[in-house]
Amino acid sequence: MLEIEAISRQFNGRSVLREVSLRLQPGEYVAIVGESGVGKSTLLNLIAGLDRPDGGRLALDGVDYGSLDEDALTHLRRDKLGFVFQAFHILPHLNLRQNVALPLWLQGVEGAAAEAPAQHLLEAVGLGERGDSWPRELSGGEMQRVAIARALVHRPRLVLADEPTGNLDPANGARVLALLAERIREAGAIGILVTHSLEAAATADRVLRLSAEGLVG
């Protein structure tokens, strides 16, 4: 279970999030929509443990993020989270297959045990023949698809996606949204999609709206 209890966050004295609460069970996939600047990406960064709230509680499978030191938090992200960033964060010195396999390498999985699932995910996002290519050879949309494959390869307990179709054409956008939904439900994971697109949000099981008053839906 993911438990978000009355979390708040301020930047330079300005309140971005005020006492936001949410509970999600394994297998639930929700989309969060809202106007620009309302704190959607900030909320995802807090849930991912990339930032810490000024108040409230965050827990995954009963583990309170706030009680963890940085090393323990890094291990939790490595083992249980998959994050699709807007900025991709694809490593230029690794080919596409290696980039996708990276979360498995960090867990100590090596050789074919890491490369086979990485290749499978590349095929699922339409890049099966590009495994030996380098990030510099990719378009922005292709890099986004690699980032999505990497976020799913280690079958995380919690999948967070920040505008995952922002750089994709409609056909590939629909493809990766279907893949996200399929993998989240198949693995019994928890999925949170942040998007401006109501079409993208409609692929989730439930749509929540974030505003100054909190999450509604």
Rank of each mutant, 00 (worst) to 15 (best):
R52Y: 11
A161G: 06
G39T: 00
F11Y: 13
G55T: 07
L2F: 03
R185K: 12
A171H: 10
N167E: 09
L91M: 14
L179M: 09
L46G: 05
A200R: 05
P164M: 03
V20N: 08
L94P: 04
R206M: 01
S133M: 10
S197E: 04
R57L: 13
Q107W: 07
R130W: 05
L152C: 10
H120A: 15
E115H: 13
L58C: 00
L91I: 15
V153K: 04
A124S: 15
D51R: 13
P53G: 08
G66I: 10
E129Y: 09
L193Y: 01
P103F: 07
N167A: 11
Q10S: 15
S67N: 05
L210C: 06
V109I: 14
V109G: 02
L81K: 05
H196W: 03
Y29D: 01
G62L: 07
N95D: 15
P53D: 07
E129M: 12
K40D: 01
E3R: 12
M1A: 10
L127E: 02
N167R: 05
A59V: 04
R77I: 07
R157V: 08
S41F: 02
A59K: 04
H93R: 15
E213A: 14
R9N: 11
L73R: 13
A171K: 12
L122C: 09
R77N: 08
A59W: 04
E70M: 09
E123D: 15
A118L: 12
H89R: 13
E70H: 10
Y65C: 00
T165M: 08
I47C: 04
E142R: 01
I47Q: 00
W105C: 03
R157W: 08
N12E: 14
A204L: 01
D51I: 09
V30L: 01
P156H: 08
N12G: 15
T74D: 15
V38S: 07
L44M: 12
R78Q: 13
R150Y: 12
R185E: 10
R18Y: 06
S41I: 02
R57K: 14
V109T: 13
W134N: 12
F85Q: 10
A212P: 04
E163D: 06
R23Q: 14
L24C: 03
F88G: 01
V159N: 05
L22A: 06
A6T: 14
V125P: 06
L106V: 12
R185L: 11
Q144P: 01
L24G: 02
A112K: 15
T42R: 02
A161P: 02
A189V: 04
R155Y: 07
L60R: 09
G140R: 06
L215W: 07
E19Q: 15
L50A: 07
R52P: 11
